[in-house]
Design a protein around this nucleic acid. Structure first.
Lengths: 210, 210
DNA sequence: TCTTTTCCTGACCGTATGGTCAGGTTGAAG
DNA sequence: CTTCAACCTGACCATACGGTCAGGAAAAGA
C-alpha cells in the first residue's frame, strides 16, 4: 500500500488543522448559529477530537471570531471591482457580479455574517465602527462623484449601498427559501446567470445609469 | 391605594400570560437565536417563573413555533396592499411602504423569521411549501399581467419579489449595522421617510414603472 | 357552601456543554 | 542519539440547560 505519506512538517500540521477546523466551524455556525453550534459537532465535522480544537482555539468565541473575520476579509476585497471604474455601469455592475458570486460560493460565510450582525455584532462591533465605516464613506463619496458628473440619477448613496448588500446577500442568506420556491431545486448555472442579470439590470436602471 | 384590581377571569389570565410570554420570546429569540435563547431568560423578561412558561408552552420548540407563525401572519397581510391596485406604481409602491413599516415596527419578528429561514426552516418548511409558494405564484402572475399590459418593463417577477423582500427586510435584519453607520443613532422619522422614498424610487424606476 | 377544574411554582433531575489536564507522541534541533 | 518543544487526546469536571412533578392557590360551577 502506498500509505507512505511522509510525516508532515510543523507549519504544515498547524496550517492544515486550522483550515480544517475553520471550514467545519463556518459550516456548523451557519447551520446552527453561535448558540446552537457545539464544539463537539464542529470536531466531528472536522474529523478531529474535541480537545484538539481547544488546543488551536482556546474558546468557542475565539474560533467564532476567526470565522467572522475571515468572511469580512473576503467581502472587503469584493469592492476592489468597484474602484477604478469609469462609471456606475462598470463599477456597480462589477460589484454586483462579485457579491453575487460570493453568495454563490460562500453561502455559509454570508449566513454567519448575517447572524452576527442580526444579533447586534457582539464580536465585530469594532470592525463595523472602523473598517466598515471608512469603507462605506469612501464608496458613498465615489457614488456621489458619479452623480455630480451626471453619470447616474441623484440617489442617496447610503441607501443604494444598502440595496446592493441586501439584494446580493439575499441569495445566500435566504437561499433555502429561494430553493424551496424553485421546486426544491438549487439554482442552475443558467438560473444564477438570470439572477445576476435581473439584479444588475433592475438596479442599474433604478439609478438611471442605463 | 387603588390596587383594587378585581380578580381576572380565566380566559383573561390565559390570554394575558400567553401574550406576555410570546412578546418576551420574540425579543429573546431575535437577540440570541433559537439555540442561544434560554427558557430562563424568556421567563425573566416576561416576569414569570420558568415553570409557568412550560405550563402554557410545553417545550421550547412549541413556543418558538408560535412566535414564527405569528410573524408569518403579519407578513402575508402586508401583501393585501398589492392586490386591487391598478398598476405597479400603486401596488408595488404600497407593498414597499407596508414592508418597510413592518421592518420598523417589528424588527424582532423579522429577525426571528430570517434566522429560521437561514437555518433551513426546520419548523416552518411546510408553510414555505404551501402558503408561501401559493402566495408567490399568485403575485408573480399579477406582476406578469402588468408586464403584458405594458405598465412596466419585462423583468423576471420572481427576482423582483426577492429584491423587494431583501431590500425592505434589510432595514430590520441589519438594523444594527445601519445604526452603526448612522453615527450610532437609530434612524429618525425623517430618515425613515428618506429610506422609504429611496427604496421606492429606485425599484419603481428599476422596473420601468415611472 | 362544597367540589371541580384550572392555574401556578419551588425544588428537583438527567443530560449535554464548554473547557481542563495529565500524560503520551512526534517532529525539530544540536 | 539525546533533548526539547510542539502536538495530541481520553478522561474528567463544573455548570447550565430543558423539562418534570407534587402539591398549593384560586376561580368556576353546582
Amino acid at each position: 500500500m502506498s500509505e507512505q505519506a511522509r510525516p508532515l512538517r510543523r507549519v504544515e500540521i498547524r496550517q492544515q488543522n486550522e483550515t480544517l477546523i475553520l471550514q467545519a466551524a463556518e459550516k456548523v455556525f451557519a447551520e446552527a448559529g453561535f448558540g446552537g453550534a457545539t464544539m463537539q459537532l464542529i470536531a466531528d465535522v472536522a474529523g478531529l477530537p474535541k480537545a484538539n480544537l481547544h488546543y488551536y482555539f482556546p474558546t468557542k468565541e475565539d474560533l467564532y471570531r476567526r470565522v467572522v473575520q475571515n468572511i469580512f476579509e473576503i467581502w472587503l476585497h469584493a469592492a476592489d471591482s468597484m474602484d477604478n471604474a469609469p462609471g456606475p455601469v462598470e463599477g456597480i455592475g462589477a460589484y454586483i457580479e462579485a457579491k453575487m458570486e460570493i453568495s454563490r460560493r460562500h453561502p455559509d460565510g454570508s449566513k454567519v455574517w448575517a447572524s452576527e450582525v442580526m444579533h447586534g455584532a457582539p464580536v465585530i462591533q469594532d470592525y463595523l465602527e472602523t473598517t466598515l465605516r471608512d469603507w462605506t464613506t469612501g464608496r458613498a463619496a465615489l457614488i456621489q462623484r458619479w452623480i455630480d458628473e451626471g453619470k447616474m440619477a441623484p440617489v442617496n448613496p447610503e441607501h443604494l449601498l444598502y440595496m446592493l448588500w441586501a439584494t446580493t446577500q439575499h441569495y445566500a442568506d435566504f437561499g433555502h427559501q429561494i430553493e424551496t420556491l424553485n421546486a426544491g431545486q438549487p439554482l442552475t448555472e443558467a438560473q444564477w446567470r438570470a439572477a445576476k442579470d435581473s439584479v444588475k439590470s433592475m438596479i442599474l436602471r433604478g439609478i438611471g445609469a442605463l
